[in-house]
């Protein structure tokens, strides 16, 4: 069973400290949700885990099954079993979705163990049908000209094709209508199992009606300030974040502006 362990993580972007000591452990079989107002560092956390070059870890550690993730290149992290569904997926012209997915799968399997074309196509057809995607999407260029909702669905398609140990879904729900939200949730629920851990980042409780989390964390000012079960998400939905701010004596929910 996989374990992603984050200890005392401090992260800066362009010299500005955004994360100020995050502690979190996600195990296979668990679904965690991180909620919080905009600008509090949720995407920064996901980018730092995946290794985006702009995000500098200044303190703390991230390990996956005891291996030092911070020592790994981005692609090595992915091959070790991490996956990030990005808030803003890139568009890449000239590479079809299918070619890209095959390259990604084969990168995991390694030279000599490549997936057969037949097997790949069968799996792709199956997952696309499950996510109610138009089969044409396989032959369109990667995310190019996709609508917001199509991009999100395509992230979940990649998740299902790549079958990571631990996935981080960064605002996979934003910009989705209810039908699309249900499909995306169906995809994530399909992945659920003891081999799969998931960290869902959202600021709407709505998503958690479809994917019931085991743990809910609240992030503010670059820290996880409160953790609990699914009932915490419901209270946030009903009452907002003010009560937490009051409880913790936080003035402004966003990261302080620099002078």
């Amino acid at each position: 069973m996989a374990v992603l362990t984050i200890k005392d993580l401090h992260v800066s972007v362009e010299g500005k400290e955004i994360l100020k000591g995050v502690n979190l452990e996600v195990k296979g079989g668990e679904i965690h949700a991180i909620m919080g107002p905009n600008g509090t560092g949720k995407s920064t956390l996901s980018s730092a885990i995946m290794g985006h070059p702009k995000y500098e870890v200044t303190q703390g550690s991230i390990t996956l099954d005891g291996q030092d993730v911070l020592e790994m290149e981005v692609d090595e992290r992915a091959r070790a079993g991490l996956f990030l569904a990005m808030q803003y997926p890139s568009e890449i012209s000239g590479i079809t979705n299918a070619d890209f997915l095959r390259a990604a799968i084969n990168a995991r399997l390694g030279e000599g163990n490549e997936i057969s074309l037949m097997k790949f196509i069968r799996k792709l057809d199956e997952k696309m049908a499950f996510l109610e995607m138009n089969p044409d999407m396989a032959h369109r260029y990667l995310n190019e000209g996709f609508s917001g909702g199509e991009k999100k669905r395509n992230e979940i398609l990649q998740l299902m094709m790549l079958e990571p140990k631990i996935a981080i879904l960064d605002e996979i729900d934003s910009g989705l209508d209810i039908d699309a939200l249900k499909i995306v949730s169906k995809g994530v629920n399909e992945m659920r199992g003891s081999d799969f851990g998931c960290l869902i980042i959202t600021h709407y409780q709505r998503l958690l009606n479809y994917i019931t989390p085991d743990y809910v964390h609240v992030m503010m000012q670059g820290r996880i300030v409160k953790s609990g079960g699914p009932e915490l998400a419901q209270r946030l939905e009903a009452e907002g974040y003010d009560w937490i701010k009051k409880e913790l004596g936080i003035e402004d929910e966003a990261v302080e502006q620099e002078a």
């Binding site: 290794g51 992915a78 890209f100 990168a107």
Partner: peptide, 13 residues
């Protein structure tokens, strides 16, 4: 950003 996206799926640089 494109490079990062592809690498985040396990594709070497």
């Amino acid at each position: 950003t494109q490079l990062y996206y592809l690498m985040s799926r396990g594709i070497p640089k």
